[in-house]
Design a protein around this nucleic acid. Structure first.
Length: 586
RNA sequence: GGCCCCGUAGCUCAGUCGGAUAGAGCAUCAGAUUCCUAAUCUGAGGGUCGCGCGUUCGAAUCGCGCCGGGGUCACCA
């Protein structure tokens, strides 16, 4: 039980006792007790606003309630002091022994520390990246990829059963264009001069090897053959090649998926999963023929007023109904996505998370409407939007143009900056705020980069153990002497401040997981690293705060226990972010 | 024009479920290393939380209306 849960439970007990003694009316419903960190450490270790919450329903002054609770809490195990402050805050200070014992508890739990069973092994589906299989990943995909991966890690960390999915858009017109582009490269590989790549086809050199492979496999068979003969073959090898490339790019960022779900598979093998999904909605009376109004801002002349097959998404909070079929009768992308999400539901997922880029925000409300309709409100879909990443180099924006071939790929960024800084920077910002990414800042001025700051803290902890080995070879992080050290020696305020920061980790991880916000972990790690660096340097002035005392093995063991606990939490947090926790920085 | 995101120190950004005197980094200024890695630390200055109204015992946080920046808006994916 973490410290907040402990205090919450104590207060809840106190409320029950007060109620049975007639302090409150019998019909008063006792609310959930919430405890948090007070803004100012001088207010105590844990604070609760429960008295103010209860004031109105109990028709009693908040301070009066707080005083009554205080009376019940005082003298309890591990509680050193209770005070009432301000309008009615209840401030609780825990005994040093409680904090000292926590260090042992962290070491005992190891990497399991901070994993409250929030998820209870419930199944969660996280869909992220889902970039079109028409080329290498560009830098714009980077943020959503890292975010989705870290979010999946986070949910796994708190006990969810997470499936990481990638939806391959391999069924639309784009992949036919891809196949045609590859056909040109195929002819080129056979010696033909294809000239400039025509407008509308994919010009990238990355298609050359695909053409060459097809040339080797099929010779000249398809050079003058009608498109119908080769389209499917070329499409499928092109998609395979692109997905291999994308998987490599993702691997460079340490990102993996459990499921690559093919859009085309929905309608393969004689099944029509899209029609089936549309039928599900039709059976609920949610599909109809109708016309949409021309959008206000749409002044273009290419607007056609025509009847379409529509999904009544406005019944579920969308702004307008959405098209299911194109003018040629084939299904829209949205129809396929409905089928995919029905598939997720059929696989037993009631918690769905999609990670979108900012350019897809307009898609959110229809997707939520679809899931609401398909699941009859039983499933929840959260859509996390990653805002755009703007690239800079030394303060100057990096201009990108696909035509000029100057667009920056994900691989470019990883190669130049490194995996860990890329991941950390992408997570060192709220997902829905736009992000300026400056190559110069992340590389040249690496001193200012928070990722090194956090990693350095971990490396320093490792370094202490390397040094300690010289004086006390037996004092390893997992040794009995360290695990069972006399922790009452950790009594300096700086020691206790670090321990309290460690104690916050479980609550932090829980709230980050609930909010689906992995960036909170990154900021926490920065704060924790700061606390540790501070304690380290304080050893300059106060020798008793140094970690190694060659003339005192017992004290060294206790201080090493604190270092090990810090290292454990840093490592766990970095693990959630998918950033390496190095043993050394040089 | 509709919808979504953002607006907090000179700059880049945190701010937990509505809580106490709004925080950090950078930059500026002043300091710290015979000693576990100075990729570190200590201190100082710096604020109309875009503006207004409302809800509340209490608002950076919630609601409404403005202002500014960005994204997006039948049929593509």
């Amino acid at each position: 039980m973490n410290v907040f849960a402990l205090v919450e439970a104590r207060i809840a007990d106190a409320l029950k006792a007060l109620k049975s003694e007639g302090f409150f009316n019998d019909d008063l419903a006792l609310p959930n007790v919430e405890a948090e960190v007070p803004r100012d450490a001088s207010h105590g270790d844990v604070a609760s606003n429960i008295a103010m919450v209860l004031a109105k329903p109990a028709k009693t002054k908040p301070r009066e309630i707080a005083e009554a609770i205080k009376g019940k809490l005082e003298g309890g195990d591990d509680i050193e002091a209770v005070s009432v402050a301000g309008p009615g805050f209840l401030n609780v200070t825990l005994a040093p022994s409680y904090w000292q014992n926590l260090v042992a508890s962290i070491l005992k739990q190891g990497s399991a520390f901070g994993q409250p069973d929030l998820g209870q092994a419930k199944k969660v589906n996280v869909e992220y990246v889902s970039a079109n299989p028409t080329g290498p990943m560009h830098v714009g995909h980077c943020r959503g990829a890292v975010f989705g991966d870290a979010l999946a890690n986070l949910l796994e960390f708190v006990g969810y059963d997470v499936a990481r999915e990638y939806y391959i858009n391999d069924a639309g017109g784009q992949v036919d264009v891809l196949a045609r582009s590859v056909h040109l490269r195929y002819r080129e590989a056979l010696g033909e001069d294809i000239g400039a790549i025509p407008e509308g086809l994919y010009p990238g050199d990355y298609l050359k090897p695909v053409g060459a492979t097809l040339a080797k496999a099929h010779g000249r068979t398809f050079v003058d053959a009608p498109e119908a003969d080769w389209l499917a073959v070329f499409r499928s090898s092109a998609i395979d090649a692109m997905m291999d490339m994308i998987r490599d790019d993702l691997a460079a960022l340490n990102i993996r998926h459990d499921v690559f779900f093919s859009e085309a598979s929905l309608t393969a093998n004689g099944n029509d999963g899209v029609k089936a999904a549309v039928d599900v909605l039709a059976n609920k009376g949610l599909i109809y023929k109708g016309t949409l109004e021309r959008p206000k801002g749409h002044e273009g002349e290419d607007w056609e007023d025509r009847e379409q097959t529509l999904f009544k998404s406005t019944d579920f909070g969308d702004d307008e109904d959405r098209a299911i079929q194109k003018s040629d009768g084939s299904y829209t992308y949205f129809a396929g996505d409905i089928a995919y999400h029905l598939n997720k539901l059929e696989r037993g997922f009631l918690h769905l998370i999609n990670v979108f880029g900012a350019d897809h925000v307009g898609y959110i409300s229809r997707m939520k409407a679809a899931v609401k309709a398909l699941s009859e409100g039983k499933a929840d879909l959260d859509i996390k939007v990653c805002q755009l990443v703007k690239l800079f180099r030394g303060g100057e924006p990096v201009k990108m143009s696909k035509r000029a071939g100057t667009f920056v790929t994900l691989r470019d960024v990883v190669d130049e900056v490194g995996r860990d800084p890329v991941r950390f920077m992408m997570l060192y910002r709220k997902n829905d705020a736009s992000l300026d990414f400056d190559f110069a800042k992340v590389t040249e001025q690496s001193r200012d980069n928070p990722v090194f700051y956090v990693q350095y803290a971990h490396a320093r902890a490792a370094s202490v153990f390397r040094r300690a080995r010289e004086a006390f070879p037996e004092l390893t992080a997992d040794s009995k002497s360290v695990l069972e050290a006399d922790l009452s020696q950790l009594k300096d305020p700086a020691d206790l401040a670090l321990i309290k920061r460690l104690a916050f980790f479980p609550k932090l991880v829980q709230s980050a997981a609930r909010a689906h916000e992995p960036h909170r972990v990154a900021f926490y790690l920065y704060d924790l690293a700061s606390e540790f660096h501070g304690l380290w340097t304080r050893g300059n002035d106060l020798p008793q705060l140094r970690f190694i005392h060659e003339d005192d093995e017992s004290l060294t063991a206790a201080r090493l226990a604190l270092v090990a606990a810090t290292q454990t939490v840093l490592s766990a947090g970095l693990g959630v972010l998918g950033v390496e926790a190095p043993e050394a920085m040089r």
